[in-house]
Design a protein around this nucleic acid. Structure first.
Lengths: 291, 291
DNA sequence: CTCCTGTGATACCCGCCGGGTATGGGCCAG
DNA sequence: CTGGCCCATACCCGGCGGGTATCACAGGAG
């Protein structure tokens, strides 16, 4: 049995991501030789080669790729332990709810209002993040609960409560021929030559091949749409995209999107339970108009 | 931002579980004073009181309870990182499949046969565990894949493939009046005065109140049934209970149990994928007789 | 061919921190 | 009051994590 220390995992992650001992050491705030030694020791303790030191630079072995992935989640778990413990000790800790900026705006407003009206309401702090970040923020304890969207977000490891189902719309630059239609299909929007779909970075930061522009944030994407450089298909209730230059047209055969409230499974927080109750009541009493 | 080391977490878990510095230190193989100091340092770094040192002994604070739970999952994640990394480096690593001893025996046999018949079959090692342990073994990397049972096992954090649905039977000592019936209901078996339901330990090791005998393993339970001291309700295909002194009677209104193949979500292992394919094919070509 | 540059590895030193022993001090039980 | 239990404090030591200086080696420029 080998007991890894989080320091070793942090060091390895830095080297594995930088693929360069010098830069990794700088990022960690230590010198390069101790880092080399630490990684070598880690390899010997595990009995596994993690890196191929080539003449020029460093490459991950298969085992190294596994450890990079596993170490990231393990470090998240450790960070979550610290954060949640501190939060638990804060008597007036607000509940942190994270959601994608601009998504499900109306629903969120109604949820916050409903929760605030509860007797003994726990204050709710709203944290906005970029697409796909909610899962990490929940996992590492920076947030207690999230609004997420099936089937797009990865809900593995979370308990969820469905809140709302809706269709999707294509966001187009006003003035584009497609913008005058009153309904579209996925076929209509999939291969528009002058509006290629934007490309998001993969987990490793690289971009898939394709003609569309590379984007990393919603705001850049919104501006690209306004400039007539790309189109996108999103849930009807998303509001981050309502620029004057934008037109929304329903896409009738796009998959329907379910907005869910998600929280780490096994969470014993009374505050989370209270919010979930509010959400369920909200959905049952006043279902928002579907699109 | 506080970076906890796994050593600190292990120390805290030991103290939190033992609620006694001396015993915790002994369990950790260190002396008591350094342990006291380490815990005190941990509290100061977190800025949170984790333990109430009472006149006599130690009690967990609310924050301490949170950290105990979080630390356990974080340590599991770290251990999983080490184990999975080593496994990844082993060229002829077998795939480890864990299941409750005695459960879904036929299904498992057919699954192993089907997988062995695959071209390029990965060897599968079977690991048997007690009830409720599969999730931990999957989480901490001791197993790659598990047979689990909805709705009884906690499937949070795992991807699953449904394999089989079946009813449940009551296991009774032969000769008991109920044993001669050809069907039972939950009402029939819920309050039999001379056959009280056995009590399993909770996570903290304590037992719920009740008249039934306390059990910790399946084998003790099987013997208690044979002795006519308790009854139990289990999926029809479970085979650990087929002693000569046992009689199985269908319980018509018990919830139906789904046997699922489960693996850590996000697992990129080709071997797991291959086994899942085998399992799906198995189910589609030759569904086992339902009960 | 030579020299320079950039890379990770090695050698060696030092200070800190984790761990040990000895002991103190508060709080029951009797 | 007193002894015992249990955690905290005081103090020492050795190992390890981190630093600097340097080496070894591979390319590339000239």
């Amino acid at each position: 049995m080998v007991d890894l220390e989080t320091r070793e995992l942090r060091y390895f992650v830095a080297v594995a991501e930088e693929l360069h001992f010098g830069r990794a050491a700088e990022r960690l705030g230590i010198a390069q030789p101790p880092l080399s030694r630490a990684i070598r020791l880690l390899e010997r303790r595990l009995g596994v080669q993690l890196l191929d030191r080539d003449r020029r630079g460093v490459a991950l072995t298969e085992a190294g790729r596994v450890l990079l992935r596993e170490a990231a989640t393990a470090l998240d778990a450790v960070a979550a332990a610290a954060r949640r413990t501190r939060r638990a000790a804060d008597p007036q800790r607000p509940l942190v709810l994270v959601t994608k900026a601009g998504a499900s705006h109306e629903l969120l407003r109604r949820l916050l209002d409903a929760q605030a009206a509860e007797p003994g309401a726990v204050p709710v702090e709203v944290l906005l993040c970029e697409i796909g970040e909610q899962a990490r923020l929940l996992r590492d304890g920076q947030a207690d609960v999230a609004l997420m969207h099936r089937p797009y977000d990865d809900l593995a490891g979370f308990d969820t409560e469905d809140l709302h189902v809706e269709g999707q719309v294509a966001i187009l630059p006003a003035g584009h021929p497609l913008a005058s239609r009153d309904r579209l299909t996925l076929a209509d929007v999939s291969d528009v030559p002058d509006l290629p779909i934007a490309r998001w970075p993969r987990l490793d930061g690289s971009y898939p091949e394709g003609p569309g522009p590379e984007v990393r944030t919603q705001s850049t994407l919104a501006q690209l749409v306004a400039l007539g450089r790309t189109l996108l298909v999103i849930p009807a209730s998303s509001r981050a995209w309502q620029w004057p230059e934008h037109v929304a047209v329903p896409v009738v055969d796009a998959p329907r999107v379910t907005t869910v409230l998600a929280w780490p499974s096994g969470s014993h927080s009374l505050a989370v339970a209270s919010l979930v109750r509010s959400a369920a009541a909200l959905r049952d009493t006043a279902p928002p108009a579907d699109v």
